[in-house]
Nucleic acid binder design. Structure first.
Lengths: 223, 223
DNA sequence: GACTTTAGTCACAAAAAGTGACTAATTCGC
DNA sequence: GCGAATTAGTCACTTTTTGTGACTAAAGTC
């Protein structure tokens, strides 16, 4: 099994492509190459001379038909024994796309993150690491904005943060923090969503601002 | 060059072992295997059946004679072309040891982080990623505590945070935050350090506490 | 036109962080 | 022995940030 192919490389690049579908995150899966009954994360063996990041972008493009609006390496995984490609280690990337504009290629399907079918242990660890990375980077990278279309209402943005954080936020607090961060710019468009007052549309457009000058934080997670 | 050895694996595990020497961080280097004039991070080719984390711990033990008090994977590096071991990709780990008890094996030397000699581009990127990881995890992992001996004074702890953060902290604020975090326990020992009032010794001993219940944070770094 | 629904803002309360000044316990110089 | 210097440890007040309920605005529904 392990030597079925002449192996030019003993590692793969695996992709955790994430979108927000309705009220939950979703992950892109495809049928496993070895066992068509099983599902797997999209993955590929990088070509000679290809960088890791380049291979990841290319793989994402092959699966999605577009390059994710944000992509980042999660790390290398080698603990679990089985991988669909039978490689020694796998370098995982997480990528984000807005659901509205993403149209996966044939053979690729979005799965709600709570309903992901059984994967190899290694790929299961990647999906979990991806959600951890997303949560951890939520306030350092434009995660939420990359899961939304180019323009959005502040309520949509708040709902996205509530989805990612897994908790409700107070409207006034949310908007005050957003204003202080200079991350969005109002457009002159408004959207009427059925009943209620129409909402103004905003776009992501970070502006320079003085660095937050905080003291120490001891935010160790409860052990 | 590339095929000089029969390659059982095309990846290496590289180690950024960090300690606090005097008023600066230091990194452990050794003479490069290929070119004895150059310095390199400690690295090794994992043995068959070995996990990534296991290989990293083992490599650290070989270089230091002890296992780091904290170790974490930084990521996989493959962009830069040259690596001392001539492997395709390298998985980097950062490990911390208190300087007081660390005694590197023969052939390994601590270099102040500002005076690191020229490394391969890939390993240079690892050192930089390691310092970024350290800063980023400073308030989620017991970084500072792992660079100090088992017992320490609060002034020493504050100096360590000042070193890691690169800025001065106010004594009262620091201690208030520390108290709120329930991370240290007082011992009944005191240490007299030349002049001045003796300081009480503390040990790292995190206690359960209610989860910090913050709202949103938009801490995007200045772009 | 009254009622409901969603957007957007305000003002006050509560909590957290910044800061200077104080007391305590030691060594040093004389 | 005693005052000055030095480091530890704490307090109390100010300023900033965050939590929160209630308000006004603009649409649809009946």
């Amino acid at each position: 099994m392990r030597d079925r192919y002449a192996r030019t490389a003993s590692y793969s690049v695996d992709l955790v492509l994430v979108t927000a579908m309705g009220n939950e995150l979703a992950v892109l899966l495809t049928r496993s190459a070895g066992d068509r009954e099983r599902w797997a994360l999209p993955w590929r063996i990088p070509q000679a001379g290809e960088t890791l990041d380049g291979g990841a972008s290319r793989g994402a493009h092959e699966a999605l038909g577009e390059t994710p609006s944000w992509i980042e390496q999660i790390g290398a995984f080698g603990d679990a024994k089985r991988h669909p490609g039978d490689v020694d280690i796998s370098v995982a990337y997480v990528g984000l796309v807005p659901h509205e504009t993403a149209s996966p290629r044939a053979g690729y399907t979005w799965f709600q993150i709570t309903e992901v079918p059984p994967l190899s242990p290694r790929q299961r660890a990647m999906v979990e690491a991806a959600t951890n990375t997303i949560q951890a980077r939520l306030d350092q990278a434009p995660i939420a904005f990359r899961l939304l279309p180019a323009t959005f209402t502040l309520s949509e943005l708040q709902q996205m943060y509530e989805l990612l954080l897994g908790k409700r936020l107070h409207k006034a607090s949310f908007r005050r923090a957003l204003q202080a961060a200079w991350l969005v710019e109002a457009t002159d468009e408004w959207r009427s969503e059925g009943r209620g007052r129409p909402a103004q549309l905003f776009r992501y457009l970070p502006k320079k601002r003085r660095k937050a000058q905080r003291g120490v934080r001891f935010d160790l997670l409860d052990s």
